[in-house]
Design a binder for these strands. Structure first.
Length: 156
DNA sequence: GCCAACGTTGGC
DNA sequence: GCCAACGTTGGC
């Protein structure tokens, strides 16, 4: 199993949108960056994805999701009405792919950048490749986050 | 709202 | 295929 960090702006699609969604799941579509796309395609069923809120008051990891279906063509790329329409893409040769993600849990606190950095994740791609919206975590990084979640859970 | 980082585009 | 210009992301 691999772990990933998926960024989204809570104003456009936050974890509460996911909770309210049908089956509490969503296609992670609209990603238009090749490196992020490659990461999306590398996701396997059962992988864990941390939901990261960006461009908001307290940016950080707010909860967990699980991959329930591997990446399939992102249909918004063919929709001329969509903000995500891409004229270079055709149904025969789609450029962009989206996996299906399902809500697992929402934390009772935000794992803010301060908390993540203090836990030793300062060298993680979360910080180093901060423009990337789909970030792979090493096993070590994933373990650190698991620990943070476990200790935060004790305060519930 | 500013601005640095950095991916993408397009002219050559 | 290089690289400057441009646009977007995202923290502050």
């Amino acid at each position: 199993m691999h772990s990933w960090v998926l960024k989204s702006e809570p104003d456009s699609f936050g974890i509460d949108h996911l909770i309210a969604a049908k089956n509490q799941s969503t296609l992670w579509d609209g990603v238009r960056n090749y490196m992020a796309r490659n990461n999306l395609q590398a996701m396997c069923v059962g992988d864990r994805a941390y939901f990261y809120h960006s461009s908001c008051k307290v940016p950080g990891i707010v909860g967990e999701m699980q991959v329930v279906a591997t990446a399939m063509p992102d249909t918004t790329q063919f929709d001329t009405e969509s903000h995500y329409f891409d004229r270079k893409s055709t149904p025969e040769h789609p450029l962009w792919y989206a996996p299906q993600l399902k809500f697992v849990k929402k934390y009772n606190l935000v794992l803010s950048r301060d908390i993540l950095e203090a836990a030793g994740l300062g060298d993680s791609k979360i910080f180093k490749s901060f423009r990337l919206s789909v970030i792979p975590l090493t096993a070590k990084e994933a373990k650190i986050i698991e620990k943070l979640v476990a200790s935060a859970g004790k305060n519930e």
